[in-house]
Amino acid sequence: MSSEVKETFIPRRPPTPGPDPGALAAKVRTLGPSMTRSMQRVAVAVAQDPAGCAALTVTGLAERTGTSEATVVRTARVLGYPGYRDLRLALAGLAAQQQSGAAPAVTADIAVDDPISSVVAKLAQEERQCLADTAAGLDTGHLESAVGALAAARRIDVYGIGASNLVAQDLVQKLLRIGLIAHAHADPHLAVTNAVQLRAGDVAVAITHSGRTTDVIEPLRVAFDRGATTVAITGRPDGEVVQYADHVLTTSTARESELRPAAMSSRTSQLLVVDCLFIGVAQRTYDAAAPALSASYEALAHRHSHPKRA
């Protein structure tokens, strides 16, 4: 099957409005690596020259990128727009932002001979860009729904492997401190064993940048089948994990390289989403959360004080 007609997985979720113009560049950076080569040509073209592409018909953009009209339409949909007309409107808006000096910066890859000062500058810029991209592309409708489910949950399970498990533990620690029952699972067997016990009224959260981590997808699938509300935090909204997610929260990250496996930006973006979830839940459960948080501070205060000298 040629790349021109390769079918792209569309998540099983209700349609949502296309992202605002400021989120378009972030969408291209996040989703580009998972697209077919022909779709990547369309995505790169609209990101590099939004004004020029906004002036083109679907036929014109197909000719410019050496693809087909069907590929242009599929690319628009993968980027989050109902059709090409909606993408053109976003391109026009992005072009206007760039003309006003609001164009997003692009961080160059780190080279093996870069001085440490350049490494610091590039990493700092990349982190800022990833956070901005994540915020711009985050579906606040799904975020609100996920917050509501977490706030009302009888029990919360969070799944993450490797670096994503660090984020899972961060979310669980935050939820525990405001009085919610939450557990982080890194062992895939234990994760599935716990997922079997979930039911309606419980929540399962899967954290996977690639969207393809089997050890995270499997317990989420079990939780989904058991009737629990499921949430996926992922950098690949076209990944397999979203098949079993009621709510998908997309993160942005820089491309990983030889010098940067498990790039920090993937965790930074995930942690932003975790903080948004926590603050939302704390707001909704404030009457119970505030005393619980105060009690946890008091219980730990002596561990942070200087020991008295004899």
Results as ranks from 00 to 15, higher is better:
D49A: 09
Y244A: 07
V120E: 10
T59G: 14
Q40S: 08
I178L: 07
S100L: 12
V106A: 08
T253G: 14
S266P: 14
E298Y: 02
E256R: 06
Q98S: 10
S294C: 10
R260Y: 09
R267D: 07
A95L: 08
A76G: 07
G201S: 04
P21G: 02
P104R: 00
V147A: 03
V172M: 00
P115T: 04
I217H: 02
S265H: 01
T253Q: 13
P291Q: 01
V73H: 10
R255Q: 13
V106D: 12
A232D: 02
V72A: 01
T59H: 14
R199G: 15
G52K: 04
P261D: 03
H183E: 12
A76D: 03
H302A: 13
V73K: 15
A23G: 09
P19K: 00
D114T: 06
D187Q: 06
G83P: 15
G141Y: 02
V248M: 03
I178C: 00
S294E: 11
H304E: 11
L91Y: 02
A108S: 13
H189R: 14
A168L: 05
P17C: 02
T208K: 00
L272G: 05
I279F: 06
A124Y: 02
T214L: 09
D157I: 05
S38E: 14
V167T: 15
S68T: 15
V58Q: 14
T57S: 15
A245K: 02
H183V: 11
S2G: 14
A45P: 12
L94N: 01
R309D: 12
T59S: 15
A149Q: 08
H306Y: 10
R260W: 10
P21D: 01
T59W: 08
S296N: 08
T16H: 12
G280V: 04
G66P: 15
A295I: 08
G60P: 14
L293P: 06
S38W: 05
V248Q: 00
S100I: 05
L259C: 10
V273P: 12
V73C: 07
L91C: 11
V281C: 02
A124S: 13
A132M: 09
R255K: 12
T213E: 03
G52T: 06
K308Y: 06
A223M: 00
D133S: 01
T65F: 03
D238W: 07
L180E: 02
L271T: 09
S3W: 05
L171T: 05
P11M: 04
L138Y: 00
R155Y: 06
A95P: 15
R37Y: 01
G18T: 04
A186W: 03
N194G: 13
A310L: 10
A299Q: 11
L56Q: 08
A223S: 11
S68E: 14
F224T: 06
L123T: 07
